[in-house]
Each structure stands twice: as C-alpha cells, then as structure tokens.
Write a protein that binds this DNA or RNA. Structure first.
Lengths: 352, 352
DNA sequence: TGTTATTGCGTTAACGTTAACGCTTAATTT
DNA sequence: AAATTAAGCGTTAACGTTAACGCAATAACA
C-alpha cells in the first residue's frame, strides 16, 4: 500500500509538495509536479480514506424525506427503523441523519419543507418519492453537489444515485400465484386499487391481472377505492361491493391497508371466508394474519430498504466506493407461521 | 461526538486508563473502571472507526469450517458467498478469511483438518456443526483465546460466542401451514426424513407433524430415507413408497434434496400431482420450482447466515461490541414468482 | 531489611492525510 | 540599493485510537 510519504521519498520532495500536487493547490514547479504525477500513477496511489476522514473530521449530513412514520398503518416507521439502525452503526463514521416528514395525503406544506432542506446544506438525500410533483420541484432546487437516492418507489426522468425498492409488477404476479394456490382458477377475484394511486399500486394491479389472464382466468374485478385523505373510508366501500358480488373467492388488497379489508370480512362473517392477500407486515395486518383472516402478506422489507439506503449513501459519500444504481429487494411472503421471526427480526436485529 | 479524550477529562484520568477500560486490558482499579464505564455509557461513546482503522495494523484471521461448497446441491456455496461478501467489505478493516472444508458424508480426514486449524493460530472460527463428534473434538483442542460461533445448526453442551440459524421446529410448522393452504386437511401426507438425521431434520419433522396434529389431521406418514453417503438413492425409495400409497396429496421433504423428489414425481407423471414443499433455493430446486413441480421452498437465508457470521465475529474481535448470543433468521417462503429476486439478491447483492 | 513483583496509572509515538505556517531564494517594486 | 512580493518548497500540529513503555507506590517475598 503506497502512501504520500513513500511518494515523497521517491520524488525527493516533502509530503507537503505531494499533497499540493494531489489537490492541485498550486505553488509547485511544473517539472516537479509532473515528476510527482508520474510516480503517483506508477505506484497506483489511493488515498487512505481512514486517514483522510480522520483528519477532516468532517460530519456528513444525510437528509431523509419520507411520509410521516404513522402513515400507512405505521409502515413508514419500519423504513425509519432500518435507517436509524444504520445511522447508529455509522455514528462513529461522522454520519448524521435528519428526518423530514411529509403528509402523503396533503400536497401543501411542501414549500416550507423544500426551503428547509435546501437551507440545510445536506451532503446527501434519501427520498421516498410518493408525491411526484413536489419532489420533482425539490430536485430542481437542489444543489448539484447533493446526491439523492430513492427508496420504496421511483420517479421517472430523474437521475438518482441509486434506487432501492421492489419489482411492483412482479409482486402483483406473486399475489396472483399465491391466490391460485389457495383458490382454484375458476374462482372470482376482487382487486382493491387504492386511489390516489401511484406507479407502485398500478404495477401491482397489472401484475396480478396479467398473471391471471395468462392462465385464462378472467373473473377479476378491479375496484377503485378513492380514499382521498381518509384511509378509514375503505370499510363501507368494500362492504357495499361484497353485497353486490356475494360469491367472491379471493381479495387482493394493493397496499398496507389490508387490515381494513380483514375487518370487513370479520364483521360481515362472510362464509366461506374469501382468501385475502395484501401488503406490509404492520401491526394491524399481523393481528389479522394471526387470526387467519389474512392468508398472505407480501412484505417489501422496508427496514432493509432504509438500512441499505443509508449505507449506499455512506459508501458513495464517505468511502467513495462505487454503488449499485438499482437494488431490487426480494419479495417476502409472510404467513401466520413465519411472521414471528420476521417481526422479531425487525424488532431485534434492526431496531436494536 | 465523544472521544476517549473527553471521557478521560470527565473522569479525571488519562486516555490510557480509558483505553484499558474500553478494551478490558486490566490494570485499572475497580472503582476507577466503574466510574469510567458509567461515563462511557452516559456519553454514548462509539469509537471512531477512522482513527481505529488508521492505527490498527494487526490482521485478524477468521477460520471457516464447513462442508464442501458443492454438497447439498450447492447449498453451502450460498453460505460461503455471504461470507466472501462480508470478508470483501471488511478487507480494509484488517480481516482475512480462511476456508476449511469437510466432507459431511465422511468422518475421516478430520484429524488432518483439526491439526491444520489448531496450527493456524486463528483469531476466530465460524463453524457449521454438522458432524457433532469431530467438531466437539476440535473444540477441545482449540485455544481458549479463539472464540467460535455456529451457523446453520447448533451443538449442545458447547459455549459458542453466538449461534446463527433458524427455528427448525417452526419451519416444520410453516411447511405444514403452507401444505394445508394447498391441500384440504382431509388429505394424506408424506414426510421424508433423511437419514443420517440430525437435530435440525428431526425438529422439522416434529414441527410439521405437530401442526397437523393440532388441526386434527393424522394422515401423515414419515418415511425414513437412509441415504448413507449417496444422496442419489432417494429416487428408488420414494418410487417404491408411491406405489404403496398412490393417493398421496402432499410431500414434505426435510432437506435440500427436494429436487430428487421432484424428479420422481415428474418421471412417474403422478396425477393429480402431489403438492411438494422442501428446503433451500439451490439450482436444482429452482429448476423444479420454475416447472411447478415444487410448490414452496423454505429458505434458510444461507448467504445472510454467512454474512452475519463474519460480521458477528468482526464486532466481537475488532470493534469489541457486544454481540447477540443467538440470531434467528426469518423463514423465507420461495415460489416460482418470487424466486427470481431471491436468487438475484444472492447473486448481485451478496456475491458482488 | 532489602529485593522483587504487582497494581494502577500516565506518557508517548505511531497510523496517513491535511492545511496552516514559515523559510529560502529570486523577482519586482520603490 | 533597500524594501516588498511571490514562487517553491519543507515543517509541523492536528484528527482519535492503540499499545508499548515507564514510573510510582504498594505488596509479597527472602
């Protein structure tokens, strides 16, 4: 491993001169500079990042822009937990995290946020790009010096450092495959598409329908559930739908609000109970999984997304390693019998 | 950010004393040590890894004792991949790995291995304790200075630093739950128990049977498949069994050789195809999952076990953090539609 | 009573990089 | 000719951690 000292010795100069050449800080005779450059190339010198960061003792500030943790039934708290775990591990590496929360059901109050983030002079930004427009606006205002990466979702026509999420279309296919394992393909199915929708939700619906179409199963209804900013209004909608189509075999809920569908099924005591598949292992969903109303939950490994997000930014900014442009996390299938260790893993391994 | 200097000032001692407390190197008065410990806790001190790594010149040698990578259809290569990934990440942290492979079907040749490991003066050891006796013998010979941890399995009456594996009994329950989602509980089931068995296999069988008993399903046959050191002899056994019990609804294979059962089902063209659930996402199992002969594969996250194994030893030996005595990994359910990203994740995120 | 260990601490020199500072020359200005 | 400036370089003190070393003071021996 070559050091600045060795280079200096080989070039018969002091380390100060080598340093000036390395950083282009001038005050070096052209011939000397060239000689040193040559030796640096020959020795394949790479600065020791430990020494550099130790000396600079500079703090790296990571901004995290995401929905309020309690939204989607606490789903976002799981991502945040993964980030907190990573930030804690990296505390000794001069990394600080700053959470900026937004209300995913409200486009207002973003101006204030944008100004706060722009003024914060952050070194990097981790974004859950749920609200496309305001986030696009933020990216315009952002300094070019500030790399950003997306998790959970994606945003077209931007150039993030990296994108960490799942294949939403494939997760729809997976839901359909599981559904067909539970119910013969001759059954009838309901897909609840939550409005306001996004790329994510649409891809899930499409994946589900595509899979069923492929195996010649066409008995699928897609219900547009416009919940606006009130997640609790799903209940009467599903209730109403169930009265219209009583012979339903399976329901696919396309977001974390699956527990609300489970409540409807439970309250109406529908028999035989339709199979229910949904997303995200939040507490309310675990409750109905435990009681057998929800059959499968597809998990997006939110805590891992958060964890990887922090580490990806760390590798890019601090250790200057090349990072992957896209990290696609596996689709986890959760049932009553394996949720214990998924939840335990989240709590124990990630939170603390 | 707290440093040992600040701690020293607060405790009215020198940094040397703080250092001795931090590393448990003795030569500190008990009261002084306690006072310093308290301050360390209060300030939430975390060592600066830049400084530590800059200073450290010592290499840590980790030994890895496990079955040959090709065994169990390449299952062990997945653990090894996870370890290689971690070792690569820690290369700049003075960590080197040394693989010691054994033949899990042969108790010989272990003497040579034991001597090699004992002579190697390793700083830590990661062990897959498949062969209880020779490994117990190794642990006798091992220096007390050398901590070891187990992955994949466990060994009673030993005191490993940590154990990283799954809940085998629960994974049997999970298999049964999935089976019942595929087949009505009135069906008849076959459990193939591979001999030579171990704690792991037995717990899986027990979990499966326990779950079914709990829901009053008693139509379960447990077939002892004595494969000795020839994994290929499963085929005729299952063939013979199937002829005796033609009306089988589901088969639970208790190890990675699930693909061999799939081959039997495929060759005999049994109709209707019995549901098949087994373990480990090795290439051969992925092949039959893709073709719909295997319905579910339960994965043990072998690459994660390996990855965590290396990091656990690292935290204990290098950063001197306290480590968890037991890491229980989630039970992953793999189907045709989600195996792509599980495999990709292994290949992309862990291998490189 | 003197000699040797042991305990409990403080001191210090690295590790590689950075950047402020200062010292020579030589060039340019008064 | 003296004074000022600048170019070109070397020196040095950090950054936080580690671990060897050393020095008292006490304890355990002969």
């Amino acid at each position: 491993m070559s050091t600045i000292k060795e280079i200096a010795k080989k070039a018969n100069v002091s380390i100060g001169t080598v340093d000036r050449v390395l950083h282009g800080r001038g005050r070096v005779a052209p011939e000397t500079a060239e000689k040193i450059q040559k030796i640096i190339r020959e020795m394949g010198y790479k600065p020791n990042l430990f020494a550099r960061n130790l000396k600079l003792s500079r703090l790296f500030h990571f901004g995290i822009l995401m929905p309020q943790e309690k939204q989607d039934g606490g789903y976002w708290a799981q991502s945040a937990d993964g980030m907190r775990k990573a930030l804690d591990e990296l505390k000794s590496n001069q990394v600080r995290g700053h959470f900026y929360y937004y209300d995913k059901y409200s486009h207002n109050s973003f101006d204030h946020m944008i100004r706060a983030i722009t003024n914060a002079r952050l070194d990097g930004l981790i974004i859950a790009p749920i609200l496309a427009n305001p986030i696009n606006e933020l990216l315009q205002n952002l300094s070019n010096e500030c790399p950003y990466l997306f998790f959970d979702s994606d945003l077209p026509e931007t150039s993030p450092l990296s994108v960490i999420n799942q294949d939403a279309h494939q997760s729809g296919r997976l839901a359909a495959e599981l559904m067909i394992k539970l119910v013969p393909s001759s059954g009838s199915f309901l897909v609840i598409k939550v409005i306001p929708d996004d790329y994510h939700i649409n891809a899930r619906v499409k994946g589900f329908v595509d899979f069923l179409t492929q195996i010649d199963c066409h008995n699928v209804h897609v219900l547009d559930a416009n919940i606006g900013d009130d997640p609790h209004c799903i209940l009467p909608m599903v209730d109403q739908f169930m009265n219209h189509y009583p012979g339903l075999h399976g329901i696919f809920m396309t977001n974390a609000l699956t527990y609300q569908v489970a409540e409807v099924i439970h309250q109406l005591s529908i028999h035989p109970k339709p199979s229910l598949i949904g997303y995200d292992l939040i507490d309310a969903n675990a409750y109905w999984l435990e009681r057998g109303i929800i059959d499968f939950i597809i998990s997006q490994r939110p805590e891992m997304q958060g964890y990887q997000g922090i580490y990806t930014l760390f590798r890019h900014l601090v250790t200057k390693e090349p990072v992957e442009k896209r990290i696609v996390l596996p689709l986890d299938i959760i049932t009553r019998e394996n949720m214990l260790y998924h939840r335990q893993y989240v709590k124990i391994k990630i939170n603390q």
